[in-house]
Nucleic acid binder design. Structure first.
Lengths: 147, 147
DNA sequence: CCTAATAGTTAGGTAACCTAAATGCAACCG
DNA sequence: CGGTTGCATTTAGGTTACCTAACTATTAGG
């Protein structure tokens, strides 16, 4: 079976890329008005662990620091997060969720999960098993990002 | 095992969303300068089948018609596609790839596949098998989009 | 100390989406 | 056959989320 591996790798790469390419549009479908955007939710989720620095957010999301700053400012204006001075390093900033921010993450997650669950409902048990088995692999691939 | 299904659905939805959320950043990593963007590649790939209408592109990608128009105009300016009058319906437009456009799709795909293959290389055989098994499922989910 | 590195913000730009409105053609109806 | 209705597309004007370059403030090292 090892002889099948080299060609399969190229094909797998192609198919996986294709699947991700299409998934971008799926993810957009989960957005709703009056709810933090996907990018903001990504930032908010990071903040569930308290006192995160702007640079950490950027690194974790794979974006540049100014993009993270921008998101944090938007969250702050929306009353979902607060910027606090870092006691140890006064160059740094600690971003923390407000209670409202915590609620926003939770309710957005609930709603989005429900929509997704509705979609997954139409799959067969075998399909769901196959999907579940692949998710840790996909996360492993995604963690390649962190460099 | 049916009793395990209802809770598993919520959890699967959550995990799948999480994986896709992270994958957005992975996909961005595959971009390179001097190459059509991911959105443009999506449009170009549709054009591999000749004489596609703007509305079809939009529907297929899950975006609004003006967004498709915009992409087509950009491709045209880049010399990668051409807009032709539809002989049967003069309201409509047929978008076709130029030879240069065809080359651009192919070489961008080759390069992007190679990068992805490099990432997948570090997986175990089992991982790759699990991923391969899930891709048709993911495509099935994505096709939910088409409405 | 002073210089180099680090953390973050500001300024200005681009890509890719959106809605609403305009244009131009087709098709149907009386 | 003329008028209305509807469809395909473009134009105009926004928004969001990214980017690079340049600036400020603070820390740390020689």
């Amino acid at each position: 079976m090892t002889s099948k591996n080299a060609p399969a790798l190229q094909e797998l790469a192609q198919d996986f890329r294709e699947a991700l390419r299409h998934s971008v549009y799926l993810v957009r479908r989960l957005d709703a008005d009056g709810e933090p955007s996907a990018a903001q939710l990504s930032t908010l989720k990071m903040l569930l662990e308290d006192g995160v620095r702007v640079g950490e957010i950027a690194r974790n999301l794979g974006v540049r620091v100014p993009s993270a700053t921008e998101q944090v400012i938007k969250l702050e204006r929306a009353g979902l997060a607060r910027r606090e001075a870092d006691p140890d390093d006064s160059r740094a900033v600690r971003v923390v969720l407000t209670a409202q921010g915590r609620d926003a993450v939770e309710s957005a997650n609930r709603r989005r999960n429900a929509v997704m669950a509705g979609i997954l409902e139409s799959l067969t048990d075998d399909d769901r098993r196959a999907l579940a088995a692949a998710l840790p692999v996909i996360e492993k691939i995604n963690s390649t990002l962190q460099n």
